[in-house]
Design a protein around this nucleic acid. Structure first.
Lengths: 239, 239
DNA sequence: GTTGTCAGATTGTCAGACAATGACTTGCCG
DNA sequence: CGGCAAGTCATTGTCTGACAATCTGACAAC
């Protein structure tokens, strides 16, 4: 069955052959988590899909304990749900949780935007850079997931204006759930709409020190986003 | 502490009429995590103490994989730090992280306080209840950790005014780090000062709909708390 | 049609083992 | 006598195998 004897080359993991110039000492568990995250964000794993330990183990060429630890991490990130003795499954975003995530985003990002004047130059620059990279990605017609990531990076940069790494981490966690929901909703129709203008307006308002206007605009922008997701979610009532 | 992050969707599922007797289906890993958390919060484990897998395994009477998974969770909560091939150790709170946690608290709790008017009655009631229980604990001269928990429960109730479970979870995670720091600082001198009056004032201001005043008061209260911790941290420069 | 039971599948936990890596000790050489 | 290299030990990261507890589904019985 298992032709081991010579290490654990196992089935094709094309990444292992790469040199990996010593910089990134990634543990096996980290790589598994990364792969699962990618699959979830890319929409390859449908919401609710059970993640069986043995199947994943032989599919990824690692042992069951390794997969198990990766799943535990995934659950702790909120991307999957574990039911005792029933296994782990990809989380299913319901309208309630979407609303909750949106509220959390709103709090975090508004806190950043309101603190624009007190923010460090580095954090302000991060906002501009994120916007530029998003615009470049749109112009270069990057992949759907790429656009999505760059878009959320702008919003994360807003949170970063608070200067608090923990708040940024919280924002990232919220965005992870959002990306999960987006992947489920837009699995077929990947119409990442071009929203460069809206974000440019936001940053312009900030640069002009019109903080309150920017905050109001951001609030509207987030409400729009939530409505869009909910609407599309409503169109896919698979259950 | 965090009562439960799992169930209680409470979307009209009338299962509650059933006994719901505390089946407490706790897995072994959960119990280990719980025990480690308790030890950390109680100050039994000094900051920086290495958490050896084998030692913990035989000390707790469980296997190494179980301990390992528990440690992974502890690390993901920020209560411990894992260095590759060097093991897991109790996190050491430095002034920078304390300041960061305080900023995060400030954002979260202010968001809740500012939303007092829009908050549900249940969430408002939770604030009053938390305050009452804190006062009762002070009057009954409860244990140090008990007072600490009840105190932070009030602040968590403030976050709860946003009505967002995720923001509450984020607040709880911040409070966990705070409790770690407090346990380290006040290991010897457990002078949990009676702060009932300060919180009573806060709630009174809210009840009187003086939201802005309450927000300002809360901001001052948090700044005071941070200063107190930092001062005491400065008195213990063990390294 | 409902209920009881059983087999299969999956998870939770354990035990043991091995390689890789980091820390410590020892001995050599200047 | 002191600094550096090699060896040794401890610890973690990962794998293999195993077993009990539990859930799922189907099948038989009433």
């Amino acid at each position: 069955m298992t032709p081991d004897t010579s290490g654990h080359a196992s089935t094709g993991t094309p990444f292992d052959s790469l040199v990996t110039v010593g910089l990134e000492q990634t543990s096996t568990v980290d790589r598994v988590v990364e792969e699962l995250r990618r699959a979830v964000f890319e929409g390859e794993l449908e919401s609710g899909t059970p993640l069986r330990e043995v199947a994943l183990a032989e599919s990824l060429g690692v042992s069951r304990p390794t997969v198990r630890e990766a799943l535990t991490l995934l659950v702790s990130e909120g991307l999957a749900i574990r039911e005792p003795h029933r296994g782990v499954a990809v989380a299913t975003p319901d309208p309630e949780s979407i609303g909750d995530v949106s509220r959390a985003r709103c709090v975090l990002e508004l806190a950043g935007v309101r603190g624009w004047r007190e923010a460090t130059d580095a954090d302000k620059k991060a906002v501009r850079t994120a916007l530029e990279e998003y615009a470049a990605a749109v112009a270069g017609s990057a992949s759907y997931e790429e656009l999505n990531r760059r878009h959320l990076a702008i919003h994360l940069a807003f949170v970063g204006l608070t200067g608090s790494p923990r708040l940024v981490a919280m924002g990232a966690s919220a965005h992870a759930e959002l990306r999960l929901a987006l992947a489920q909703v837009e699995r077929a129709r990947r119409n990442a709409s071009d929203q460069v203008a809206a974000h440019q307006l936001l940053v312009d308002l900030l640069e002009a020190d019109k903080v309150d206007q920017a905050a109001a605009e951001l609030r509207r922008h987030l409400a729009d986003g939530e409505a869009a997701i909910l609407e599309r979610l409503g169109l896919h009532p698979d259950q």
